[in-house]
Amino acid sequence: MGNRYEMRLAGSGGQGVILASVILAEAAVDSGVTVIQSQSYGPEARGGVCRAELVLSRGTLWFPKVTRPDFLLALTQASLDKYGRELAEGAIVMVDDSLTVPEWLEGARLVPLPILGTARDAVGKLFTANVVAVGAINALLGLFDEKALLEGAMRRLPAGSEEINKSALAAGAALVSPELAAAFAQKIG
């Protein structure tokens, strides 16, 4: 155990948090970082609470599931309320800035960002919110170089959507100021 960086991406079914986690996992494989990605979902194809998980390490990984995430992305209030309670000490919580942060979470290392708004207004398509989030997560935590992330995204996103997703990644990264990035950068052990 140890040397595990556990991440949980949560949202509503259909928002694409599984795809977001797969893009990050692709980038990890390309960067020589050991990764296990998994997901769990209810019976709904759309709606409900959906979560995807990543474990990252520079060593060997066995147990694939996330128990106490070091990082949580929550795109919906329901997912924040549900998963905000199961965090590691000092966990980083990235939330869409439209969400109400519950009192009990106020002590966490919160990073509210306009993810949905950026997808809708700046990129022009709300369905790119997951890719905006990927850009923001990577910029905030400083996980992988941009080239690996872009290539990973291109392998997994549907053909024909390259341009819009490229701008979604960039728009996500732009939400993170250099100061924020410096404060939250993670080193995967």
Binding site: V35, I36, Q37, S38, P64
Partner: peptide
């Protein structure tokens, strides 16, 4: 399901 649904490099 553990192995079926997990992704690894």
């Amino acid at each position: 399901e553990i192995v079926g649904h997990m992704r690894e490099g």
